[in-house]
Structures are given as C-alpha cells and as structure tokens.
C-alpha cells in the first residue's frame, strides 16, 4: 500500500470565517468539524467527492505563520492551487461574489491560471489544464 495524500492544509486567521469562504463561496463540502481545545479539526472535500483528499483549515497561530503568509501575499505567491474546469467562468463567478483577484486568468503554456485572495490571509491559485 503506497503512502497516500489524505489531508492537505491552508493556514487561516479565523476558522469560522474560513469555513464560510471555503464552503459557501468556493463550494467545498464540510467533512469533519471536531472541537480541539480552542480550535476545531475542520476539513472539507471537493463537491461530490466526500472520500477524496481533505482540505484542513488550520489556525495560523504559530508566531512565524503570519510573517510568512504576509511575505507570500506581498509577492503574489499562492499558498496552494486548486483545479477547475473553466478558469474564466470561475473568475467571473467569484468576482461577482466579491472575491478579489491579484491575477486574472492568464494562459501560460499547458495551463490557464488565476490567483485570488481567500480573505483569511492567503492567495489561492486556480488552474485549468488544457
């Protein structure tokens, strides 16, 4: 049995706000919401794929987390990347919901990508393969 990717994470400044963004705006589905001290073990999956890889919304409490996130955002570097079928359609849909993009859809070789602000201290890339 090979090692599998089961959970990946983004560091968020507020789990409740992040849940609203990642579930209600991006459209992911809640998988686990387990209280853990001050925080929650909060994971989501892609819509229609509840057995798929989980995204953990992890608190950015560590003192090094915020300077790191701030530096990435300053240079426009996304914390992670998600796949979409149609970047232009997602750009239009998310923009209409008030999501701010640092990079509109740009065609670069085998992919078209766009980058937006997740409102929790990260930039997120969406990519469409051609």
């Amino acid at each position: 049995m090979p090692i599998k990717i089961v959970v990946t994470s983004v560091l968020v400044d507020d789990q409740e706000k992040a849940l609203r963004f990642y579930r209600d705006i991006l459209g992911f589905e809640l998988k686990h919401d387990i209280p853990m001290g001050h925080h929650r073990w909060l994971t989501l999956t892609s819509p229609g794929d509840s057995d798929g890889v989980e995204l953990l919304l992890e608190p950015d409490e560590h003192p090094a987390a915020k300077p790191w996130k701030t530096a990435l955002v300053a240079d426009g570097i996304p914390a992670t990347s998600f796949g979409v079928e149609d970047v232009h359609a997602e750009h239009a849909r998310l923009s209409a919901l008030g999501v701010a993009f640092t990079q509109p859809p740009v065609h670069l070789g085998p992919v078209t990508t766009a980058v937006f602000d997740d409102s929790c201290g990260n930039l997120i890339q969406i990519a469409q393969r051609h």
């Binding site: 240079d75 426009g76 570097i77 996304p78 640092t102 990079q103 740009v106 670069l108 070789g109 990508t113 980058v115």
Partner: peptide, 16 residues
C-alpha cells in the same frame, strides 16, 4: 502584455 503583475506572475511568465 499585461501591466500590473505581481512578482509571482512575472516569475511564472519568465520561467516559461
């Protein structure tokens, strides 16, 4: 070609 790029976008473009 596209004004107002972040360092990240410019870097990806130059690498390609």
């Amino acid at each position: 070609e596209r004004d107002g790029q972040t360092l990240f976008e410019l870097h990806v473009r130059l690498i390609s």
